[in-house]
Design a protein around this nucleic acid. Structure first.
Lengths: 183, 183
DNA sequence: CCGGGTTATGCAACTAGTTGCACAACCAGA
DNA sequence: TCTGGTTGTGCAACTAGTTGCATAACCCGG
């Protein structure tokens, strides 16, 4: 039950319309809590009827027009409550690790290409994060807010680093192919 | 759609009853694909009626009796197919990172205790994995199967290591409390 | 001025996972 | 022997997330 809180956080950072939110989820927030535009619109409706957010009064759009939302005090309180509340870590669920385990039983036939593909994806993601770090957190930006946000980004960077290393290591289990190296 | 494949993998490693499977999910398999006993029983039913597994013919249990399953050739084929098939990594979803981001906006009030708790949980998990590594993968066990399974365990160890480090680092953002250190 | 792409919003149906509970069998001690 | 805990199996309802599609407005070129 975190999507509403992800949206509240995003809206507190900056009031937005559904589409803007969707875009921001594709970028920063979505890096650790992804959501589709359908989810977002549905949840905006719920949050509004729950009295946690409201449409910005300035604009009064018709159907198909953009509609911007802002967080009401009740919404901020709910977010603060949720943030402080103790929560258990959700059990991990990783398909790739599961497939590796299955491969130990039914054979590695065919999995290697996908490992390479994942390695590539994680490398790209890592590069993107590092780009963001360079841009948004130059040395010196040191407010409490910045430090916390930087910390979150560091988690992303370190996780992607872990995956690229692990995949590289895993691929060393598949030396038997035509290609450069080993000779 | 990975639970059936997790179960097939577990059953190929060793035919089991629902309860045994549940226990094994609590231990090894569940480390990267968790499932409750309810999920497992439901899925066993589906797999059986789908012709991918069958009950071991030897025993013919009544209600409330244990019933063991084994994988049929069709099940093995399906698992091999699934393992080799290309799959996109699922978008990440981490509540704790989301909460940190929220904390940057609504304040860190109250989150620290939970960070400590998570740190403790991850440390325990790490210790458990390292125990397993020592026990199950002493130097020398080097069949292809062992190497793959060890690789999977390494992923678990490295991930827990990452989290303990990150949480430790995160907690350094909260120096302002009575406690040992800093003086 | 109209037809086709793009932007923006949204509903509905489906799938996967979680929670809560039920029930039978077995076993141990009063 | 009955009573109460534990083991083992399972259904049903609910929640969260995904997929597929519908709709309206707007914008641009012919």
């Amino acid at each position: 039950m975190s999507l509403p809180h992800a949206i509240l956080t995003a809206l507190l950072e900056k009031p937005s319309s559904g589409l803007e939110l969707t875009r921001r989820f594709d970028k920063s927030i979505g890096y650790f809590w992804s959501a589709t535009h359908q989810q977002i619109y549905r949840e905006l409706g719920r949050l509004e009827s729950g009295g946690l957010i409201r449409t910005l009064p300035s604009e009064q759009p018709a159907r198909g027009q953009r509609k911007s939302y802002e967080v009401l005090p009740a919404g901020r309180e709910e977010l603060a409550r949720w943030t402080a509340a103790s929560q258990d870590p959700r059990p991990m669920r990783d398909t790739l690790l599961l497939r590796m385990r299955a491969a130990a039983v039914v054979g590695t036939e065919g999995i290697e290409a996908d490992l390479r593909r994942h390695l590539d994806l994680h490398r790209r993601q890592l590069a993107e994060y590092e780009e963001i770090e360079k841009r948004d957190f130059p040395p010196g930006k040191d407010s409490s807010q910045d430090r916390l946000r930087h910390l979150v980004l560091r988690a992303g960077i370190d996780l992607e680093t872990f995956w690229t290393r692990w995949l590289t290591h895993a691929l060393e289990e598949f030396p038997d192919l035509p290609g450069p190296g080993t000779a």
